[in-house]
Design a protein around this nucleic acid. Structure first.
Lengths: 335, 335
DNA sequence: CTGAAAGCGCTTACAG
DNA sequence: CTGAAAGCGCTTACAG
């Protein structure tokens, strides 16, 4: 049942056409010595004319290198990741590396099947964007197998690995301090508490509150990084305790949900309720919204992660590289 | 200079450990007959214990199938694509196929190097999301090589190929008719005219205007699908001809740029200037924005494209499959 | 400067 | 039920 699969032109086809052996074609194409200039020229022409392209499978198998990286992204509903991916893909391409982008379950659950597929495909290195503490055994296994990897954004407490991100705690503390003003009733709507990023942001916001001598409301401190979750938490909190003065959100998407609810309830932002986001997603700066948030260098995070990974692939075997990129508080109109 | 590359456990390692030949391990692992149940059991255990995973490179080379699809996305600044990609990746995963996601240059220019890399990697089929007429030779070459592919969203006039998208012209016409009301001074800010999608949307908007007996302003009918482009065109148009009654934009991002300018100029939306987008990106429904737009089933488009491609891979060799999915006009507050 | 041969890690007829 | 052998498409020492 050959379904008429693609008929590839092989090196042997080229060799036959030129009247040499396949090895000679290989030498010619790879710029190895041992082929006269004329012959090389002729081989190159014939190969191009026949549309020959070396099989990456065969080359990878033979040489033991595939020039391929794997990137694991959680659910794409969160616009945070595409830009990060863009940085990774671009930086990799500049080094002649291809990237296998794979989607892992929502919120990064269940990395294992994806990682397995990537390793089976001989990815030379892996980049994770949404690890959770329970991924530790899988990462340890990767280390045992000698497959280098790096973490982007989230990391795992007490697990040493290459990482690039920002200082989420400091950023959240800074943001909170800046917008606090005289507001006393403040709520924190964070992301999943098992995420190091979300945990850091929440901790920073709490710290800023405490420094100002107030305790944030206990509700909603962790939850999903979605608009629905932000809306739901806002509705519940406002219903139970009335509108608050300020809601510090774990990301821009949560903030959008909170603002949706304010809008529905006829509450003015920021006069009745101030709201901050995090990440500075593209929509955050839109005229009618002008969300106060923190800019995170997503693209650059991706690029730097590729750089660290390349060093590992190049044989660097030293201490984990921890790269903390600068962030930027963007104070706009919502707080 | 072996940089300590990963040491894979091979089938032979397993075979040696069990004391059989590598072929037997292969039979056992692939559920082929010819191995006693006990032996099979033992092989499976040992293989699992050693962490053996068959090399996709070797299997692909030998079997001639890689179970890999290639997906080509343009620049990710446009949030349209990630969701589409998500549909593709999920649908492919359900069929046991991995997806190589590759980024092509902004606006889909220069597909060739990416396609080449994907073909070199033995992708069994390709999915394009942002083709332009100048990509025709490349697509023809793919056909000649017997590599099936499908187009998503954009297509090429007069080029027959599997395609899935919506009826952009009809959708734009419907949207425009719905929001036109008594407005007479209307501008159309479309995307790149060489994009079939943008061309269709612009044509639909023009048609609706003509049906209403008015001619849209000639400025800005094509441009980039970016916020900057929307803002720039709005500033120029407003400066040259004063504010218009209605701006029909080629996508939500352009609309955001227009709204930014209205906001800066103190123009009320929709009272002074009505604005519509296209795509219903997630931010479009946000409380303070409530953009009037058209919902496009991005995820479903990805899924359907995978389905058509799988049929091709399964040997279907008939007429190109054209799948036109339903759209939905979302009338909110900006027009 | 060129050719014959081995081998990367698998699968698959083919003998026993 | 099991083993030996060929071959997928390359690269790379090794002879000539």
């Amino acid at each position: 049942m050959n379904s008429g699969g693609p008929k590839r032109v092989t090196q042997r086809d080229v060799a036959r056409a030129v009247g040499v052996t396949s090895a000679t074609v290989s030498y010619a194409l790879n710029g190895q010595p041992g082929v006269s200039d004329e012959l090389r020229q002729r081989i190159l022409e014939v190969a191009a004319g026949m549309g020959f392209r070396p099989s990456r499978l065969a080359v990878g198998l033979r040489v033991g290198r595939t020039n391929t990286l794997g990137l694991l992204l959680p659910d794409v509903a969160n616009p945070f990741y595409p830009e990060l991916a863009s940085g990774v893909i671009d930086a990799a391409a500049e080094e002649g590396l291809q990237v296998f982008v794979s989607q892992v379950g929502l919120d990064g659950r269940d990395h294992l099947p994806t990682v397995t597929a990537l390793v089976d495909s001989h990815c030379e290195g892996l980049l994770f964007t949404a690890v959770l503490p329970e991924d530790t055994p899988m990462l340890t296994e990767l280390q045992a197998r000698g497959i280098p990897f790096g973490l982007i954004n989230r990391r795992i407490d007490g697990f040493a690995a290459d990482w690039v991100g920002i200082d989420d705690r400091a950023a959240a503390k800074e943001l909170t301090s800046v917008v606090l003003g005289g507001r006393r009733r403040v709520a924190i709507f964070g992301g999943p508490e098992r995420s190091s990023v979300s945990a850091g942001r929440t901790a920073g916001a709490v710290a800023a509150c405490e420094e100002a001598g107030l305790v944030p409301l206990p509700d909603g401190r962790s939850g999903d990084l979605t608009r629905e979750s932000g809306a739901e938490r806002a509705r519940e909190l406002f219903a139970a305790k009335g509108p608050v003065d300020l809601v510090i959100c774990g990301n821009d998407v949560i903030a959008l949900g909170v603002i949706d609810v304010c809008y529905d309830l006829g509450l003015s932002v920021p006069d009745d309720v101030a709201v901050t986001g995090f990440d500075d997603m593209s929509f955050a700066s839109a005229g009618p919204l002008r969300l106060t948030t923190v800019e995170v260098p997503r693209q650059e995070m991706g690029r730097q992660a590729v750089r660290s990974l390349l060093d590992r692939l190049g044989g660097y075997d030293g201490e984990p590289r921890v790269v903390q990129l600068p962030h930027q508080v963007r104070r706009r109109s919502t707080a």
